[in-house]
Design a protein around this nucleic acid. Structure first.
Ligand SMILES: [Zn+2]
Ligand SMILES: [Zn+2]
Ligand SMILES: [Zn+2]
Ligand SMILES: [Zn+2]
Lengths: 157, 157
DNA sequence: ACAAATCTGTTATAATGTTACACTCTCACT
DNA sequence: AGTGAGAGTGTAACATTATAACAGATTTGT
């Protein structure tokens, strides 16, 4: 599998994605507490994105359903440590597809089926970065999202 | 002034920006109705972004204060016709800085002062687009945003 | 003048995200 | 083991952002 292929669009052994992510989380010495674990697991079910409240509604531990801050705290943690990404265009979250090797990622978003494919690529647009550098701007984070219709959905019309 | 300089960071005759935008709107044969006009005017006050409710709270015509849908409708219209842009990272809106020549734009966002500089540049990241094309993805729109600290704010610490 | 299309007014509600504060747990250090 | 600091959780309330639905008004083309 080529490095830059977006996993989301490929048939693949997804349980492998899950194992990699969990192993990666442990290797970093992160504290994967109960809720963080559960949220990560929900996100790792597939490569779709989920809203915070969709996650919240499915969160549950021994019959206990947590409140919004619990979901947001877990999501913030996962995003901060690179185990998940926030999709700004959708106000939603996805598990990182390559938590072991994710420097900078862009996202391909299908409007129809909501699949979100992560692509490891250099940060931002070269022209944009050049202009930013020219005006002494200190760039800290980058949003790169492309919305459209995936080839599956094009054919299903 | 070089084409790719971000206007927002430069001292400039901003009333000129406003005239250009309004002229541009009229030239396109768009119906700039009362609310659309007023919203555009608010956005054109400077190159800062404004949330929909910030706009809503300042909207007023002959003592009449409209409801949320009015603001959102005007904003949707302006965005759709390229007179404004939505900043996904901020859930906010800016007037287009070059409505006469805006094919595709990226944004430089200062966390401190909230200034939003628009940069005309090619759509998205080349690697991201290449991968999208490879998998037969039909790209329709692109989000390019870089967040950080502008040089002014770096010096003001 | 008329019909179709577009725009507006209005009410209500949905969806997303945060503050604040008390309490509990974990971990490093005596 | 005790203990204190920091990190994590529980909970209630609230703030912000966005949309649905539908009736009425205005504009546009014929
Ligand atoms: Zn997978
Ligand atoms: Zn699709
Ligand atoms: Zn200006
Ligand atoms: Zn600044």
């Amino acid at each position: 599998m080529e490095k830059s292929e977006p996993l989301a669009f490929l048939d693949h052994d997804h349980s492998q994605c899950r194992r990699t992510a969990l192993k990666c989380a442990n290797n970093q010495g992160l504290r994967l507490t109960k809720w963080r674990q559960l949220v990560l697991d929900l996100l790792l079910e597939d490569h779709r994105s989920m809203g915070a409240y969709e996650i919240l509604n499915r969160l549950e531990c021994n019959g206990v359903k947590p409140q919004p801050p619990t979901a947001y705290r877990a999501l913030d943690f996962l995003v901060e440590h690179g185990l998940a990404h926030r999709i700004e265009k959708l106000n939603a979250y996805v598990a990182c597809a390559r938590p072991d090797a994710c420097q900078s990622a862009g996202f391909i978003i299908c409007k129809e089926c909501n699949i979100v494919a992560e692509v490891e690529c250099s940060p931002s647009n070269p022209e944009l970065l050049r202009v930013a550098a020219n005006v002494g701007f200190d760039a800290e984070s980058t949003v790169m999202e492309v919305e459209g219709i995936c080839s599956n959905c094009q054919n299903n019309d």
